[in-house]
Amino acid sequence: MNMTVQTSSVDTAPPLWQMRLKLALKNFKSGWAIFKENPIGIIGLVLIVFFALLAALHPILMATAWEPAVYDPITGYDFEILIHPSPPTWIPQPDNPMWEFSFRHVLGTDPLGRDVLSQLMFSTRSEFLLGVGAALVTVLIATTIGAVAAYYGGLVDMIFMRIADVVYMLPFIALLIVLSSLFDFELIHLALVYGVLAGFGGTTIVIKSQALTIKVKAYIEAARIAGGNDLHIIFTHLVPNLLPLSFLYMMFTVTGAIFSEAVLSFFGLLDIRMSWGLMIQTAQAAGYLLNSWKYWYLMFPSGVAITLLCAAFYLVGRALDEVVNPRLRKR
């Protein structure tokens, strides 16, 4: 392309990648300055870091403090406790003479005698993987299609936008429920299907409208005059400028993906070893939610975790919205 011309004419200038890095860093700093003004974003970020720590701590704890035979999230069983499920061991139980204060099971055990905290921490990793996987698929599809549709316009644009309209209207969960009850659905399938659905739907429309405003900027024109072909313009000039918005929509996709995983495994439709939704499903299938309040410790940890992690990404998304959309700032 025309990069050689540029660098040879300005010999003393630093290489292009250094400039780009510097620019990116500057952008990031100014973005962060706006982001940290907003308590909503900070709370979301703290929550995400907290869950990331939980996920990272699990293998360490399994290797050091926790005995695998007791604490394994899937096959563990604690023989020293007579009745499973058992409430958290640090809560006094007046009717149990065997009770003594300990942090043996911080969140209690489930109906199959497994440690709830261990399950919770173990599942966190796959929730993150699922969320990020789905979000990457979404953003990849949405950014490419958005950029291509906006750049070419005409028939290409119309076809993709009509597809987006239809996908947008689909009742997501109903579709996923039908799919997953007829297929053997694994986590990776869910990430793919969710990512594709979200990518072809609403996200594309938003990103395309942003791409339309970038397409008419002077530097795109300049690149075209300098002899850049369509692919070059789309991928080195259009797409990088769409990335902030794509990143914002990644956050909302993560929320949606984690939520739908929880719902599907709550209905027992997902082929998965352990997840937050499955923890509630286990308790429900064993009939422990019939007398719901007595076994609150089967419902609370995973219910709260799902709610908090979904909310965390949503909160970060809301705060990022203000960074990306100058119109929303300073109120």
Binding site: I40, V304, I306, L308, C310
Partner: peptide, 24 residues
Amino acid sequence: TLSSISAIMLYTAFPPFLAFLVSR
């Protein structure tokens, strides 16, 4: 801030969990 956060929390709440609390 508080109303925003609580609205988002309710919006992203896991429906079975919320139903459990409400029925309780």
